[in-house]
Simulated assay, not measured.
Amino acid sequence: MSDTSIGNTSVSPDSGLAARLAELIAQHLPNARDVSVQGIAPMFGGNARKAWSLELVFQLDGLPQRRPCVMLIQGADRQIETDVAQEFRVLHGLNGKGTRAPAAVAMDARGEIVGAPTIVLERLPGKASAVDFLNSPDPAAARRLTEDLASVVADLHAVDWTPAAFDSALEGLSPREVALRQITHWHDTFLAQRLEPLPVMSGLFGWLYRHLPEPQRICLVHGDLRPGNFLYEGDRVSGLLDWEMAHLGDPVEDLAWIYRPLWSPERFVPLREFVQRYAALARREIAWSDVLYYRVFNELKFAVISLTAARAFITSSTPNMRHADRAATVPPCLNRCLAWAEQHRKETSRV
């Protein structure tokens, strides 16, 4: 690998990368001819991964084609372990299914071409700024955008996935057992990453195990669907981004994550109204107690991610100063969990 690889966004891509990428992409587009990659340029860089834009040029059935793409390169400072190959399989499985997910183009799962695990996706139009959306000077347009998001999520959850086809480990599991795997995953991660006993957090994981609702159905859950992780143009969602945490689970999980307090669109569409709109589109009833349950789950998930980031900084696994005080975000998360757990108790006691 050249010293000027794009695994580090402070330098330019090496001169041979475009040719190597073209060879990789040609393997995924067997009917294409004269494949070339042009105009590789940095888009942004976050903790989890870096994004580069490029133009894919090729011939198909004798006709010239030009496709704008984005290359996502796994970063060293990611807060959670993710599987590029799994993310690519999910997006490839969504190709042509009527969702607003980008088409999967190519994958370098082990980083043999780029220098780090990488996927190449269709580049969709729109912007993803959560700040612009949440501070919109046009609440009516932001409301329509939030309502469209409910439609997008309903369409995503309507895609039929066979658990065993998604992950062989899910074969033969009941819907409840599939949903339980997410609780177990984040609980195990908490136990591995915590820096002190955190008995309240331990107790809240026990609460999750005891109160797990019976899923009405199991579907593909995006896992990180929120402002900042979808593209939009005006009052319409144009694409869903960042599929690293996609998994099979209870669809209510996505609804609750969208409305985490840090990025909630509550001022445009209240959560209850959003859930009602989604339920009407999905043609199923959603118990408010299930929403409260997944608010607790998601807040604990966010707290675990924060603990993972804090441990990475404390153990010198990363020099990123943004992680230095991440553990300070945990107590407010736990306070919210306790409040929602109490609301859940009151809600279920009325049934």
Rank of each mutant, 00 (worst) to 15 (best):
316 S>A: 14
247 H>G: 02
244 E>D: 15
249 G>L: 00
57 V>F: 07
53 S>L: 12
270 P>T: 05
333 C>G: 06
286 I>N: 00
242 D>H: 00
122 E>F: 05
321 M>C: 09
311 R>W: 01
26 A>Y: 06
126 G>P: 14
202 S>H: 13
294 Y>G: 10
343 Q>N: 13
232 Y>T: 04
85 A>Y: 07
177 E>C: 09
211 H>V: 03
258 I>Q: 04
130 A>T: 11
138 D>S: 07
153 V>E: 04
135 N>G: 14
350 R>T: 09
74 Q>C: 09
48 A>M: 14
202 S>K: 13
67 R>W: 12
228 G>R: 05
212 L>C: 09
33 R>F: 08
119 I>W: 08
147 E>I: 12
277 R>D: 10
16 G>W: 07
280 A>Q: 12
196 E>G: 12
13 P>F: 06
174 S>R: 06
67 R>Q: 15
227 P>C: 05
24 L>A: 02
179 A>Q: 06
67 R>I: 10
252 V>L: 04
208 L>D: 00
86 Q>L: 13
219 C>I: 02
262 L>W: 11
228 G>M: 03
334 L>T: 04
67 R>P: 10
2 S>V: 13
70 V>A: 11
113 I>E: 09
149 L>G: 05
22 A>C: 05
75 G>L: 02
192 A>H: 11
245 M>G: 01
